[in-house]
């Protein structure tokens, strides 16, 4: 199939590159961005590796984040430790389905999907899986956008900890899982951020190109 010739032209092929900071199109030969003096790099192949590492770490951390309790709530001396899931279950039990859905989405679904999405994304880049470049990009943007909402849980926890501090009567404290969860979110965000999305174009395009060219 013939692709749009406009689409097939890459910046690096015409000796141009884009400043990663200010997105100024500059000559690829320049060492630095003439506008913001950022070091120019045409393709960051190492980013893939970094992203993978962060993603794997996040994946590992996802386990304690869900297994360990995320909050320690002391209510009239009764210490209740809630995992993310037990908290959601509690909300369901107390008939707060909408909040439960939000919490479930933000705390369980989003991190999980994010990791899965990133894995797919990275796999697609690394192993050049035949997935539509467009779909991948859409997915990536979704992941990147939605990722920040996963911090909802942590916001709730941090606010609760700050506000609810009445000693033995009522006290909320972050439990070990909170750290893990925060790391999961942070690492996935970083993994999404650190990756040089231009690699996607190269890999996929080259493959496509090779297939078309040959």
């Amino acid at each position: 199939m013939k692709s749009n010739p406009n689409d097939s032209t890459l910046g690096k092929q015409v000796g141009l590159t884009c400043c990663p900071t200010c997105n100024k199109v500059t000559c690829a030969k320049s060492a630095c961005c003439s506008r913001c003096d950022t070091k120019l790099i045409i393709r960051d192949y190492a980013s893939l590796q970094k992203s993978w590492a962060l993603l794997i770490t996040a994946a590992i951390l996802l386990i304690p984040a869900n297994l360990y309790p995320i909050t320690t709530l002391t209510n009239q001396g009764k210490v209740t430790q809630d995992t993310i899931f037990s908290g959601i279950a509690h909300l369901v039990k107390t008939d707060m389905i909408p909040i439960a859905i939000i919490l479930f989405t933000a705390s369980i679904l989003v991190p999980l999907l994010k990791i899965i999405g990133l894995t797919i994304y990275l796999t697609a880049i690394s192993f050049k899986l035949p997935i539509s470049k467009k779909n991948l990009m859409i997915g990536f943007h979704i992941i990147e956008w939605i990722g920040r909402w996963s911090m909802l849980d942590l916001f709730v926890i941090s606010l609760t900890v700050a506000v609810v501090n009445m000693g033995q009567l009522l006290d909320a404290k972050p439990a070990p899982a909170a750290t893990a969860f925060a790391l999961v979110i942070l690492l996935t965000q970083l993994a999404a951020k650190v990756i040089d999305t231009r690699l996607l174009w190269d890999r996929l395009e080259s493959k496509n190109d090779s297939s078309t060219n040959t």
Binding site: K50, A53, Y68, P176
Partner: peptide, 23 residues
């Protein structure tokens, strides 16, 4: 020269793994 060196970023998952294992 393509650096084929193991990126230090990989320490992160290792630490995480170690931590998880310890836990």
């Amino acid at each position: 020269v393509k650096k084929k060196l193991f990126s230090p970023i990989w320490l992160l998952p290792i630490i995480a793994l170690a931590l998880g294992a310890w836990l």
